[in-house]
Design a protein around this nucleic acid. Structure first.
Lengths: 257, 257
DNA sequence: TCAATAGTGTCTGTAAGACAGTATTGT
DNA sequence: ACAATACTGTCTTACAGACACTATTGA
């Protein structure tokens, strides 16, 4: 430990011996919705410690690299995309001395979410990577403190949907209001009233902008049933006020299903 | 830069040459209310870089020390208290490669707030420390990226008052509803309607608990005027739902003053 | 009696929850 | 015709903002 820990009171230039050496990493909790389930991207570790455990993707921050740039770089490497289409933000930093048995690592965790992505390829080497429904992950033994990070990340995503327009980041650029409602229902794990949901979304200035167009018979995917729906794009607003609040806890589904 | 930046894909044990060396620090934005003004604790730097600039207090994280423990340690050192009476939480991490001209430093910033504290002594050495009204700090040239940190910290404190009961942490353990209202008005920089404020606070389960007692003639400080007020303590609730929301932007004071 | 502070009551508008009902498609 | 999905309207309740009013103290 350095003789004097107060930077401002004894700065006298840094030598590498003046401060404790840390490794700084980023960890990523990347969410997407697949087949109606909220999923998170995990990789399987090939080496000790936590060999064969599943873990959040992550890696070292380069010396000349912004922390955010490192996170974006890892995000693209792990998802196999050159341009990440969704949203990413810093979550918080996890730095307990014993979180990595080998050495002192401080990890800046990030949360990201994106529209349905191509199934991940596992990248250039052997480590496998896949999307896990978050509901199944609680049964899984994750590496390091990644259960804690994941649970903080989930809470962040859920609360972000309340007071921002970021739910649209889970969807492609055109979508129906039912699609948007499904995002909220999937991420929150609740059922919402369609009428009230439409009223709220459409009365929120800049949340969605209507295209003058409706869904087609859709020859590719499964054929559409029922009345064609109007199509929307994300609007320019980023914040929602008043927010679109989660129904109070207690039951994860409401009366009407 | 290390050959392979993916921890999970090439862990092969760490050598100090395998990862870039970082210094990890904590920075603190400590708020309190003095003479009706929201104030932040700053120290004056005695050495380069940013000599004689004001800066947020902070320091290195020890090798065997939790990040939070380091923040609490610095907090006590800077305020001269052995037991910090308020609330502290992690804000976010600032790690741009050029934020410190000497070397790569990643700083985990924290926000704290507390009841009126004894004027800070400047500690055991020459560096001076004092409380600055936040309104005056915008004119001040701060060291490093501390203006950015301070502005993020302010927004955090302001939004925390909306959906938590932490406003009570700015007060001593017994207080009146007017005291509590003054906290909101000072932190948010607005005027609130006393009637509506009381209704909201008292209808929020567990926010405040009435003591069966009123303010006295108060021989010490300035003598009290007007009707004695009922005294309260902080309740057991931590969250506020529905929240006590800030009035929408535009005017910093409302019509009634 | 007056200023100052504490505290109550009431009216109104906005918006959320519940839910009934209508519209438009494919089978 | 019927199921399935999309969409509209209405009733009720919760709650915030505005503001008028009463209460209790010291000077």
């Amino acid at each position: 430990m350095p003789k004097n820990t107060k930077r401002a009171k004894a700065p006298r230039g840094y030598n590498s011996s003046d401060y404790p050496p840390f490794a700084v990493t980023v960890d990523l909790a990347v969410f997407t919705i697949r087949q109606g389930l909220l999923c998170v991207l995990l990789i399987e570790r090939a080496e000790e410690p936590y060999q064969q455990h599943w873990a959040l993707p992550g890696g070292f921050v380069g010396v000349d690299e912004t922390v955010e740039a490192a996170a974006l770089r890892e995000l693209c490497e792990e998802t196999g995309l050159t341009m990440f289409p969704g949203h990413m933000e810093q979550l918080r930093t996890y730095g307990d001395p014993d979180r990595d048995p080998r050495m002192r690592v401080v990890s800046v965790a990030h949360v990201a979410f994106a529209p349905s992505l191509p199934p991940v390829t596992g990248g250039s080497d052997a480590a496998q990577a896949r999307w896990w429904p978050v509901i199944d992950v609680s049964e899984l033994p994750l590496a390091f403190d990644h259960h804690l990070i994941l649970s903080d990340a989930l809470e962040r995503v859920r609360s972000k949907l309340e007071y921002t327009t970021l739910a649209t980041q889970f969807l492609d650029d055109v979508f129906t209001l039912s699609d948007l409602q499904r995002v909220y229902e999937t991420v929150w794990g609740v059922s919402l009233d369609a009428g009230n949901f439409r009223r709220k979304v459409q009365s929120s200035e800049g949340f969605v902008t209507p295209q003058r167009q409706r869904t087609q018979a859709q020859l590719d995917g499964k054929p559409r049933r029922g009345r064609p729906a109007e199509l929307f794009r994300a609007g320019t607003a980023t914040q929602l006020h008043p927010p679109l609040t989660r129904p109070p806890e207690s039951s994860t589904a409401n009366k009407r299903g």
